[in-house]
Simulated scan of single mutants.
Amino acid sequence: MTTQLPHEKGFHVSWDQIHRDARALAWRLDKRGPGEDGAWRAVVAITRGGMAPAMIVSRELDIRTVDTISVKSYHAGGGKADQQRDAEVLKHPDAELMGDGTGVLVIDDLVDSGKTLELVRELYPNAHFATVYAKPKGEPMVDTFITGVSQDTWIFFPWDMALQYVEPYRGKD
C-alpha cells in the first residue's frame, strides 16, 4: 500500500472561494454575539491563516476593533509536507481588549488537530472560536465553522499558491 502525498487528496481554495466562505461565516455569526443586539466587541485573527477571513468577517459585521494572536504550530519538514508540532504563542493580543474573551470572535482559516485553538481557548475561555474550514479532530475546539473536510485532506490556500505555466496535455504544438 502506498501512502498518499498531501497534494494527492488536496482541496484547492481560490481567493474567490475563501472570500465567499468567509462572508458565509460572517452571516452565520451575525447577531450571535453577547452584546446589545447580538454585537461582537472585537475580532482577533490567528496569524497568519486567519488574517484574510478575519478581515472579511470584521468588514461584513462592521467590527472596527481588530487584533491578532500569533501562534506557531507548523514547521517546514525539510522537503516533506509541513509537520505539526506543539502550538506556541509568539504574540498576544491586547490584554485589556481580550479579558477572558467575552464578546470576542477569534477567527482562523482552518481547525485541523485543534491544538492551536485549544491553546488559545485556554487563554480566552469565553471567546467565540470560528473557522472557515474544519477537520473532524479539531471540530470540538471550534464554535462555528462553514465547511467540514476529511482529516486526510490537505487544504491549499490561495496565499500558499502561485500560478505557473503548465505544459499542454498533448504536447507543445
Rank of each mutant, 00 (worst) to 15 (best):
S150N: 07
E96N: 02
H19C: 07
L110P: 03
P93K: 10
S70I: 07
P140I: 07
A22Y: 14
D143R: 13
G99Y: 10
H7L: 09
A127L: 12
F11I: 09
V57I: 11
H12D: 07
R28C: 04
E8S: 12
E96P: 00
I69D: 00
W40V: 10
W27N: 01
N126R: 14
G79W: 06
L29M: 10
I107L: 05
V13P: 00
H19L: 14
F157W: 14
I56Q: 00
H75F: 13
S58R: 10
P53H: 06
I63D: 04
Y165A: 08
T47S: 15
T68W: 04
I146S: 01
K91N: 06
W27V: 01
L97G: 00
V111N: 01
T153V: 15
R59V: 04
H92V: 08
D37L: 12
L5C: 04
K91A: 12
R59K: 15
P168W: 04
S58A: 15
V43N: 00
P6I: 05
V43C: 01
E8D: 11
L25E: 12
G49E: 09
G79D: 03
T102K: 13
L110Y: 08
V166L: 14
S150H: 04
D100F: 13
L5H: 06
G38K: 08
K80W: 05
K72W: 11
L25W: 15
S113V: 13
I46V: 15
R32M: 02
S150M: 05
D67I: 15
K115I: 08
D21Q: 12
A127K: 07
A26P: 04
E8L: 11
R32H: 06
I107H: 12
Y169C: 06
D16I: 14
T2I: 09
L97F: 11
L5K: 12
I146G: 04
E36N: 06
R64S: 05
V132E: 09
S113D: 02
R20Y: 06
A24L: 14
D108Q: 12
K91V: 06
I63N: 03
P6D: 02
P125V: 12
L97I: 02
V142Y: 15
P125Y: 00
D160V: 07
P93R: 13
M55D: 06
K137M: 08
L90K: 14
S113L: 05
R28L: 10
A45R: 04
N126P: 01
W40K: 04
S14E: 03
A162I: 14
F156T: 07
G101H: 02
K172D: 11
I18N: 09
W40N: 01
F11T: 02
T144D: 01
P136N: 13
K135R: 12
H128T: 14
E60I: 14
I56S: 01
G33R: 11
G171E: 08
Y165T: 13
V132D: 08
L105C: 09
I69W: 00
H92C: 03
L97E: 00
F145I: 15
Q17A: 12
